[in-house]
Design a protein around this nucleic acid. Structure first.
Lengths: 118, 118
DNA sequence: CGGTTATATTCCTGTCAAGGAATGCAATGC
DNA sequence: GCATTGCATTCCTTGACAGGAATATAACCG
């Protein structure tokens, strides 16, 4: 039984509950970034960015590698599979009740959108 | 323009960030329940159940109908489509990353692998 | 009407997370 | 070595809930 990225569900939800952290995650979807880049892009102070990244790391959503003096952070989407699994039992439900809405929301373009912001 | 289930994303994430509320949502997946039933099933005090249900209502996740003196709460899964939509861009990613992870694990047999983090 | 059941709300208190400022620390370059 | 860059951590303050107890409200029943 490998429990590599199997952080507690609670940590994952808590990490994603914060809009800033969701923004960071969305940013990292477009590629690895240093702390400074993340701070600037998400309009966070440097310490704030550091702290948010720590939470994301502890939730298993982000990995870090050192590169000279910089710390390059990379998204690890694996824990999000837990969200997907949580969602699974509900997915059929809204298909039944809200067909049109579901279809509209399912439109997922292949290109990253310019900062979904949320 | 009806704004029934179209609560802000933030309210949805915040509502689901709480484990008790996720439990309530999961319970309601099995059918409508009165406040008292929910409180007992989720081991909440009655006021606590009431308050959590209020949050869920305001996030659009739950609807209520009055029935005699009881208030029967029903799950409205529609807002969860927003979660699904949020998740969509990542869904393809974790397939890749899990593959990579699996390959790494397979490449490292019984050699006492120091737990990377945990 | 008075009592009872079912739920909502208020008040209070403790806890915890977030943000800012300042500082610590590590790696780098000269 | 020393200054600099890049980031982490601490300290502190503030605000946002969460839980419990007590109370308010509402619908029902006799």
């Amino acid at each position: 039984m490998r429990h590599i990225g199997a952080m507690s569900d609670a940590a994952l939800w808590a990490a994603l509950a914060d809009p800033h952290r969701r923004a960071v995650v969305a940013l990292l979807r477009t590629g690895p970034r240093t702390v400074g880049e993340i701070a600037r892009a998400c309009e966070l102070s440097q310490p704030s960015a550091s702290k948010h990244l720590k939470v994301l790391r502890e939730a298993g959503l982000v990995r870090v590698r050192q590169e000279a003096q910089r710390r390059v952070h990379t998204l690890d989407p694996a824990p999000l599979a837990a969200l997907d699994a949580w969602l699974a039992p509900y997915r059929k439900l809204w298909g039944e009740s809200l067909d049109a809405l579901g279809r509209r929301l399912d439109a997922a373009p292949d290109t990253a959108e310019p900062t979904p912001k949320d």
